[in-house]
Every structure is written in structure tokens, then in C-alpha cells.
């Protein structure tokens, strides 16, 4: 087994807050330049850019965790990842169904565009993606797990849109596969303030919205090879797999 460097929290230009330079092509080039082996594609409430990123990343030997950053009805941001296209598409249907019909105003929130490998716009998402979906954190968790996905509350140390800001503390019995902390803290620092979460695996991702953010905060995975199942085992600390939060 060996170490692979992962940044599992990256937005593309499809997220309204994602920089226009965050095209799948640019993200993959930037990740390759910075020696990232595994990238997670996590746009707000959409998975529509995952396919193209996966295709382009494959050409450069980068593994892609396909998913989204969901906003639950409590306005908690949670990362969700899926192993295959079938599960990913089912999750996309769930998002489409449960995201409110409120239109994006690009002048206020930013463009929500999907592009092809030549940077041509092929689709514009009309619904505002940063809204909360109508499902609770528990409902989202259970749906993600029913699709055999990974469920990871995002940037839990932040004072907005985190499980701590919205719900005060970690709900009992929450079945999280890991918890993500942002680059503003370290596992050591965070555990000192929140010793109650020491049983959880702590990940660090960059939450990149600009090319320069990619890989600014990463996690090392000690695994056989980059794959969904290996990553899942590492998060659970199974069969000698593990993670080191950088």
C-alpha cells in the first residue's frame, strides 16, 4: 500500500460561487500540477460536472470521487460521494426533486454553467443551487447510504452552514462516514475544543472555489490504489487502510 494525496472538496464553475476559471479542464490541470492523486467534485446541490471531470482526470491518472455538497433543510453543508454513475444519477434526481424552484440571478450569485472540454457552455442551471433542499440532514444521510454512498458533514468548524452552527452540536446517532474540517483548523486543535468527536475520522479538504485553492488543504490516504472502496476502507480504518490529515 502507499500514500495518495486527496483533496475531496472542490467546486467547479457550475457552483454559483465557483470561479469562472474552475472548468473541469482547469481543475484537472491544476490538480496534476500540484501532485494531487484524488479529487472530490462537490458542487452545491448538483453532480452535473462529475462525468466530464472524471473523463479528463482519467487521462492524467487522477482519480475522481464523484458527488456533491448538499445543503440540508437545516442549511448544513454535507459532502456526498457515490461509487458509480447509476447511484450518482439517482442522487441527481433526488436533488432536482427537492431543490426549490427559485431562479438564480447570476448578477447577484454568479453563473451556474456547465462546460465541455473546450470550455464551451453546454448547459446553464436555472435553479439557484445554493438554496437548501427540502430534506433533513437525517433524511439525506439515509438516502446517501441507501445508494451505498459516503456521507460527510462539511467544514464542521465553520461558523456558518456547518453542523455546529446550524444544529449546535453533533446529533446523536448521526451516521457520518467522516467529518470534514476546513483549512482554518487542524484535527489536534479541533479535538481540543470538541473532544466528543474523537471517534470520527477527520478529513481536510480545500473547499476550492478558485484554481489557486486546489490542494491547499489535503488528506493522505494510505491505500492499495485509488478507488471508491479503498477510500471507504481508509475512512473506516479497515484492513490496514488509513488516512493522515495534513
Amino acid at each position: 500500500m502507499q500514500y495518495f494525496r486527496a483533496d475531496l472538496h472542490i467546486h467547479t464553475v457550475l457552483s454559483p460561487c465557483g470561479d469562472l476559471e474552475m472548468s473541469p479542464g482547469n481543475i484537472v490541470s491544476e490538480a496534476a500540477l500540484r501532485g494531487i492523486d484524488i479529487i472530490g467534485i462537490t458542487d452545491h446541490n448538483t453532480t452535473r460536472h462529475c462525468d466530464l471531470v472524471k473523463r479528463l482526470a482519467g487521462e492524467k491518472g487522477i482519480f475522481v470521487m464523484q458527488g456533491a455538497e448538499v445543503t440540508t433543510k437545516e442549511e448544513v453543508h454535507c459532502l456526498a460521494f457515490f461509487e458509480n454513475t447509476d447511484a450518482l444519477n439517482k442522487f441527481q434526481e433526488y436533488l432536482d426533486l427537492n431543490l426549490p424552484e427559485i431562479k438564480n440571478d447570476p448578477s447577484k450569485f454568479g453563473y451556474q454553467v456547465q462546460v465541455d472540454e473546450n470550455e464551451n457552455v453546454v448547459y446553464e442551471e436555472k435553479k439557484l443551487l445554493i438554496n437548501a433542499i427540502s430534506k433533513s440532514i437525517d433524511e439525506v444521510e439515509s438516502l446517501v447510504h441507501s445508494l451505498k454512498g459516503l456521507f460527510i458533514p462539511a467544514h464542521i468548524n465553520r461558523t456558518k452552514n456547518s453542523i455546529y452552527s446550524q444544529l449546535g452540536f453533533l446529533p446523536v446517532n448521526l451516521k457520518a462516514d467522516a467529518l470534514e474540517i476546513s483549512r482554518a483548523t487542524t484535527p489536534g486543535q479541533f479535538l481540543k475544543v470538541h473532544p466528543e468527536i474523537k471517534g470520527f475520522t477527520l478529513l481536510r479538504g480545500s473547499d476550492a472555489h478558485y484554481p489557486g485553492d486546489i490542494g491547499s488543504s489535503t488528506t493522505l490516504f494510505f491505500i492499495e490504489e485509488p478507488s471508491f472502496q479503498e477510500i471507504k476502507m481508509a475512512l473506516k480504518g479497515e484492513y490496514g487502510r488509513k488516512i493522515i490529515t495534513e
Partner: peptide, 20 residues
């Protein structure tokens, strides 16, 4: 809820849309 934990006082009635 983090705000309520920090600022609500004993005996108050709390009005919210949260149901968790």
C-alpha cells in the same frame, strides 16, 4: 442552534422553524 445555545435564557419560549 449555536446562537440559541449561546444567548437564550432560562424560562424563555423559543420560536424557530428548525424541527431537528
Amino acid at each position: 442552534l449555536s446562537d440559541v445555545m449561546g444567548n437564550a435564557k432560562e424560562g424563555q419560549v423559543w420560536i424557530t422553524l428548525q424541527t431537528h
